[in-house]
């Protein structure tokens, strides 16, 4: 409603100072103020949403499930190895660790928040390692090994994963997601460094650090949700 009120203002009628724009008190420590970063992150997450939505749409269209765009009839669904579920669990656990870090940072305990953040980062790294194992397992299918992951008819197909559209999409989409997780890990490491340097006596420094942890947690929750949606896509097709 505030947006509608803002967009229906009649600016020619009301010369005067007007309601204040959302520019907020000065924050001297960083070039960008944390709430600017929050807005920036929200906009960025919108872009990421689009990216994965488009890749998922391409996936569905290539499957042949989309009217008028029947694929080549060469779609063989990939299996669901237990590792897939384990990785999902790791990602969710990382998200919980980031929330623990946020709670401690807000409570004014930057050191303990840093420890929880480190745990979250480690779980994130474990997720990436697990994804790499998945990739290897999938590659193994095309080298002739039988595994839970292998597409139903893939055994003995010499063309390799590139000739298998479901496998190619799995690499593409999970790879893009993994890169976003790695990017998040860099941000998390920077935040961890900031927590380690924070002066526990300074309220401004503590709240600033807590805001940074909050952005990390938000990003992580978002990427976990994206992964859940992608899992749903992989498992249901």
């Amino acid at each position: 409603m505030r947006l509608i009120a803002a967009l229906t203002e009649k600016p020619w009628l009301t010369p005067g100072p007007g309601p204040s724009a959302p520019s907020a008190p000065a924050e001297s420590e960083s070039a960008a103020r944390p709430w600017d970063k929050g807005v920036g992150l929200t906009v960025f997450l919108l872009v990421v949403t689009l990216l994965f939505t488009l890749m998922s749409s391409a996936y569905v269209m290539r499957m042949g499930g989309h009217a008028g765009h029947a694929g080549g009839g060469d779609w063989r669904p990939i299996g669901e190895p237990p590792l897939l579920w384990l990785n999902t669990g790791l990602l969710a656990a990382a998200s919980l660790a980031f929330h623990a870090a946020l709670g401690r940072a807000r409570a004014g305990r930057p050191r303990r928040a840093g420890a929880a953040l480190a745990l979250g980062g480690a779980l994130g790294l474990a997720f990436v390692a697990g994804q790499l194992l998945l990739w290897r397992a999938l590659a193994g299918c095309f080298a002739g090994e039988a595994a839970a992951f292998c597409p139903a008819a893939a055994h003995g197909i010499p063309r390799g994963w590139a000739g298998d559209p479901a496998a190619a999409f799995f690499y593409l989409i999970s790879g893009a997601h993994g890169l976003h997780i790695l990017g998040g890990l860099v941000a998390c490491a920077l935040t961890g460094g900031r927590l380690a340097r924070v002066d526990p006596g300074s309220l401004a420094a503590r709240t600033g650090a807590a805001r940074a942890v909050q952005l990390c947690a938000r990003y992580w929750d978002f990427m976990a949700l994206v992964w859940l949606a992608l899992m749903g896509l992989f498992v249901s097709t």
Binding site: P11, S23, V39
Partner: peptide
């Protein structure tokens, strides 16, 4: 975020 005071949308 950075509009100055009085600069409504």
């Amino acid at each position: 975020q950075a509009r100055t005071r009085g600069m409504t949308l």
